[in-house]
């Protein structure tokens, strides 16, 4: 067991190093991301400010709380994009036979899929995320107690697992449909709307959907509601939301792993 973990860590760290080297081969590409990503998200939060200032709070969420939520959603998105971006390309790999090589190596296929590309460019998404989150925490009066910091870390881990599970499950559909590129874009939009804005502003049906069926409400909305004592849209669970997030994350991740394994059985490779 220990030697297995050592083996996987050694391979993952080598892959991480190779991924950095590969990305440094194209510095201008890196630079363009560095320029575009912050613009995208800072303008997003600016829009939110204008809407709240001109009109009213969104279902009881005022601007400081919205900023906190937006920042939390963005950080978990950023970290997800660093470690799990390859879950977006499962359909490519199904069509062009990319799983062949992974199946020829004596390691877990899902591990290889994920670990083979650590996307450091994704850290750029974290920069506006961290800035917006810290600003939001400041103006919303977030209590930086040790317990809260611990919960925050659990929430981030759980949120990332939920995202990974969602994209893995969607990608796995490609083992049957062969093509599902637009699903990634669709899921990204859905995630942005459900994790960076308060879920409670949506109709009851959508709230239920994003809580019990596709539990992306747990990524940032419910924990943020708890941290800031904001309106959670009526959902009440024992213990704290911040502890439910990692639990939901682990369950979703295990289910997605099972779906992926089942999908692999249906893999047909590609003619060569």
């Amino acid at each position: 067991m220990v030697s297995t973990i050592k083996h996987y860590v050694s391979v993952a760290s080598c892959w991480a190093r190779l991924a950095i080297q590969r990305q440094l081969e194209y510095p201008l590409f890196l630079f363009s991301w560095l320029l575009m990503i912050p613009i995208q998200y800072f303008s997003g939060i600016w829009m939110l400010k204008i809407i709240v200032d001109r009109f009213q709070a969104l279902n009881g969420w005022d601007f400081p709380q919205l900023t906190f939520l937006y920042g939390l959603g963005l950080i978990s998105h950023g970290i997800f994009v660093v470690f799990f971006i390859n879950t977006w390309s499962i359909d490519h790999m199904v069509i062009n036979g990319g799983f062949d090589r992974l199946l020829l190596r004596p390691m877990n296929v899902f591990f290889q899929l994920v670990a083979s590309y650590v996307n450091f460019i994704g850290l750029i998404d974290c920069i506006p995320g961290v800035i917006i989150f810290l600003y939001g925490a400041e103006i919303a009066g977030f209590d930086w107690s040790l317990a809260n910091i611990g919960k925050l870390i659990l929430v981030l881990i759980g949120g990332i697992l939920i995202r990974a599970a969602l994209f893995t499950s969607l990608g796995t559909i490609a083992f049957w449909t062969k093509r599902n590129g637009s699903m990634v874009g669709f899921a990204l939009t859905m995630l942005e709307r459900a994790t960076m804005y308060p879920l409670s502003m949506y109709p009851y049906f959508l709230q239920a959907l994003f809580t019990f069926i596709i539990p992306i409400g747990f990524i940032s909305f419910y924990p943020a509601a708890e941290f800031l004592n904001a309106d959670s849209g009526g959902l009440d669970l024992p213990l704290s939301f911040a502890l439910w997030t990692p639990l939901v994350g682990i369950i979703c991740f295990l289910i997605a792993g099972g779906i992926f394994k089942f999908g692999m059985k249906n893999y047909e490779s590609a003619g060569s």
Partner: peptide, 22 residues
């Protein structure tokens, strides 16, 4: 018709990865 080598890196890097995988 397909390679398992990393396109952007020197050949030796791909070998080092395989050393760890196997």
């Amino acid at each position: 018709q397909r390679t398992q080598l990393y396109w952007d890196l020197r050949l030796g890097e791909s070998f080092e990865l395989l050393r760890r995988i196997y």
